[in-house]
Amino acid sequence: MLRVWMALLLGSGVLAAPAVQAQDKYPSRPITIIVPFPPGGIADITARSLAPGLERVLKQPVVMQNRPGAAGTTGAQVAATAPADGYTLLCHLVSISTLPEVDKLFGRPTVFTRDQFVGIARINADPPIMVVHPSVPAKNLKEFAALAKKRANDMIFSSSGPYGASHVPFAMFLQAAGLQMRHLPTTGGAPAMTAVLGGHAITWASPPALAAPHLQAGKVKAFVTWGGNRLTQFPDVPTFREQGYDIEYYLWAGLFTQRNVPAGVLKTLGDAVRRAVADPDVKNAFAKVRTPIAYQDSAEFKAWWDKDAERLAKVVQRMGKPEIK
């Protein structure tokens, strides 16, 4: 309730702020981070964990604004059309690369494009883990792939939604292994996990934090991870590269802003994020949600993001769209 009023007050404040203020030393007023997902998700938790650290460095309030909708499109659109003054940031996930590709695939007008944004920093990058229902008669990825080949288009994998952050990596695997499996899309990470736990699907590409408690309790088994290196938390789970597949995928979160933000402001923001991720309280907050910081500064992130996006675009194009009969 209080927050509603605060948001209203802040909102009117932002509207009333004259444009000349942009000439002042940055930052001279509160900064908004737009989170294009509902509270409680990974983008939300990332931004919220980072915000106090940014506030300490920038000496200005950092306000979160959740603008969920259309799998992260609505919030991205809002951030893309915000004034290029560095007061509106966007905390988005890997799907910022795939959403425009999916629009292209379906022949829809693109709502936003990647080049409307500039990356301030990558904050974290966790590879998903392939978790499998214990009833599946396979002990490792090799046996699993053999089984899936034998029972072509008979085994079911789940995902958090079509072309979403857990469907794309699974499609990468299926494309690389030349396999066919049935797809059971759901409406989020938790429902996908539930489907596998209940045995309605046998596997999905789960974020490690979501899989950890169920692995620990022996409700699912883990065969492989999409990362370049093994996860410290699960040293026994091999990577796809070790298993001879040339695939790599991360569920990463990054901080973005509008492309035309002045270079000086960008530098201030970049420095602020670098110092914030080194802040012990921020580090502790990320450790608690089992999402390790994998920081990259603006330049590193740009090179890495371009490569990642190019790879994902190809996967999405190959996935194609379902035929309508």
């Binding site: 509902p38 409680g40 938790i45 919220r48 539930t194 736990l197 408690p213 309790a217």
Partner: peptide, 27 residues
């Protein structure tokens, strides 16, 4: 089981997750 079955419980799970508690079958 540590599974949120509705949007409301999903938010509640997030509330305990940020404190370093992973909800799951052993909770």
């Amino acid at each position: 089981l540590g599974i949120p079955t509705s949007p409301v419980t999903a938010v509640m799970i997030a509330a305990i997750m940020v404190h370093g508690i992973l909800p799951g079958p052993l909770l």
